[in-house]
């Protein structure tokens, strides 16, 4: 397509004033909100952590020391690798992966039900009851989970009443509260892409498969899931990215002995007062989650364009 012709048509169609506004706002969004801050962070991550007086001075050169620190640790430390940070990093990714799987397992049936079985009023009520709890702010929700999963909380109380356990289980220390909290926090981001994808599936296809004797498992495996794949990947990507990058839930619900990788990043920015190392760590998290997601999309043969559908 001829780009100059395209722009001319764009302005003819929208008028000069609206066209200019649209272009400027998109450009503002792209450069000022996305590219510029990230570019600063990238620049930060490759510089030494210097006192303000030395900024721009002779010592202010580019370096990869922060990235090296993440892998090898400080020169004085024992051991070859920075096992603490690397360990937390890998554990965070694995945990985020399982939170994503857990959300998918819960949300797929809900989304399917909403899209194909629920009737008008019921489906609206269900969607509403899914959305309304998210009006409660994150901190309040996290602390509510903490109380619920605490040793005197309803869950321990219920399990003890049932007689499944006779001692309260420390769900906080075992990180159960954390995974539940994370899973719950991003449930809508999983349900809505799934719902959108499944909802557009022609019901007759399901009936046709059923008419030909297919079991429910086969109908989902051969018809619904392949059709909903873009929605599934879009939901999984969002939940995975956001779980790996969550901060409040790990702060409040995480066990005392386990760290989430974002907490280490936070520490470098706040208590460590080393923004350069913090941004290096944050960029490592960003890059590795993107690579992981792209890898998964390759494995499951999903194209990036399909996700944006």
């Amino acid at each position: 397509m001829n780009p100059s012709g395209y722009f001319r048509r764009f302005f003819v169609r929208n008028g000069t004033a609206l066209g200019t506004f649209l272009l400027l706002s998109v450009a503002f969004w792209m450069f000022v909100m996305i590219i510029l801050p990230q570019a600063f962070m990238i620049d930060f991550s490759f510089r030494h952590n210097l006192p303000p007086a030395e900024l721009g001075g002779a010592k202010d050169t580019y370096t990869t020391e922060h990235y090296e620190f993440m892998v090898y640790g400080s020169a004085e430390s024992e051991g070859e690798f920075n096992t603490v940070d690397l360990g937390v990093f890998v554990r965070t990714l694995i945990a985020a992966f399982f939170v994503t799987l857990f959300d998918l397992a819960i949300c797929y049936p809900i989304a399917y039900f909403l899209a194909h079985s629920a009737q008008g009023g019921w489906s609206r009520l269900m969607v509403l009851s899914l959305i309304v709890p998210f009006w409660v702010n994150e901190i309040l929700r996290a602390f509510a989970f903490r109380i619920m999963f605490g040793s005197a909380g309803v869950i321990n109380g219920f399990l003890m009443w049932l007689g499944v356990i006779d001692q309260p289980v420390d769900f906080i220390r075992e990180n159960v509260a954390l995974y539940a909290g994370l899973g719950y926090a991003f449930i809508l981001l999983m349900i809505f892409p799934l719902y959108n994808a499944i909802e557009s599936l022609d019901k007759n296809q399901i009936e046709a498969a059923r008419d030909m004797g297919a079991s429910w498992i086969r109908i989902h495996r051969r018809i619904v899931i392949p059709f909903a794949k873009p929605g599934i990947s879009s939901g999984c990507t969002m939940v995975f990215m956001l779980s790996a990058g969550a901060l409040a839930a790990p702060q409040i619900l995480g066990g005392p002995s386990s760290l989430w990788f974002t907490q280490i990043i936070y520490q470098w920015f706040q208590t460590g007062n080393n923004w350069n190392r913090g941004s290096a760590y944050a960029l490592i998290l960003l890059a590795s989650t993107i690579i992981f997601v792209l890898l998964m999309m390759k494995v499951f043969k999903v194209k990036l364009g399909e996700i944006a559908r």
Partner: peptide
């Protein structure tokens, strides 16, 4: 699924993500 009938839908309801032969052979796959 248990009746000796097969239904052809008004909109046909062919499976768009399968090839033609996979569509035809779906009942056998089942």
């Amino acid at each position: 699924n248990k009746r000796p009938t097969a239904l052809i839908f008004q909109n046909l309801a062919l499976f768009p993500l399968m090839t033609v032969w996979e569509n035809i052979a779906f009942a056998l796959e089942v």
